[in-house]
Design a protein around this nucleic acid. Sequence first.
DNA 1: TAGATTTCGAACATTTTAGTAAAGAAACTT
DNA 2: AAGTTTCTTTACTAAAATGTTCGAAATCTA
Lengths: 147, 147
Amino acid sequence: MLSKKTKYAIKALMVLGRNYGKEPMQIIRIAEEERIPKKFLEQILLEMRNAGILYSKKGAGGGYSLNKAPEDIYLSQIMRLIDGPIALLPCVSLNFYRSCEECVEEHACGIRDTFTDVRNAMLQILNDTSIASLIQKESDLGFFGNP
Amino acid sequence: MLSKKTKYAIKALMVLGRNYGKEPMQIIRIAEEERIPKKFLEQILLEMRNAGILYSKKGAGGGYSLNKAPEDIYLSQIMRLIDGPIALLPCVSLNFYRSCEECVEEHACGIRDTFTDVRNAMLQILNDTSIASLIQKESDLGFFGNP
DNA sequence: TAGATTTCGAACATTTTAGTAAAGAAACTT
DNA sequence: AAGTTTCTTTACTAAAATGTTCGAAATCTA
């Protein structure tokens, strides 16, 4: 399961994505719009800022904005930043590899082999879905999916 | 990430799968073979027994054995039994659906849409991988992948 | 320069989950 | 009857997830 933290992060990025190219947006506005506890969101935005995804400005008229185009921010990147590995087993992770303590022969492990496939299937989608595509998809759903 | 519990469950099922058709196997043997804490394994096996996957017999000469053919036990089933939902968001889960509290318009949510695709991609593999195929794969890897 | 605004940073608090262990009851075999 | 093995309940510990508190530090406006 995704943590709430990551879900909040994605939602915040979508808000900022829709605001891309305009004035910075304040935490409180994002928090209210998406019903995210303000102080918690503050932490999350900070993490993304420190990772270079967001730009921030202090003081009156300050706030947050995207530091990259919404097309260039991918779900995989956000998930790894906040939640860590995407793979379901440490021994299969590309960015957070750790061996499984009990495992004797890693390269001859059937479980590992299968979960490598699972990871690849997940990444095929997550590497390909950007904040821009999420925004696009949502507006499509709004038009075509409504009563 | 898979919990250790689920990983232990899969490993235990593979041991029992290789023993399919023979005498019941005692917890302690499985635990030693796979380096799983005995008492913890006891709990896990019990859960699977109560779910009908395993057969058990008390007393001397007792132990555990598969209650179904290894071909008919799928990773998706085990994961759901032990860890719960496979989907990364509650609002996307087939067997453990819960709505996301903050979510206003669930059917017009771009995040949800994408994570439905992710779930489907995962299930395509997990619904198709049985204990039997894991055992098969492992023996293949043993023959072809060794120095 | 003063005051208001807004992010930054650390630390703390609370709740849930993961992982494990203990003790003894119940069932079965010989 | 004695020994073996699963079953059941209970409880503990450590870590992670989810927030909150408090007070800086930077920036803008008047």
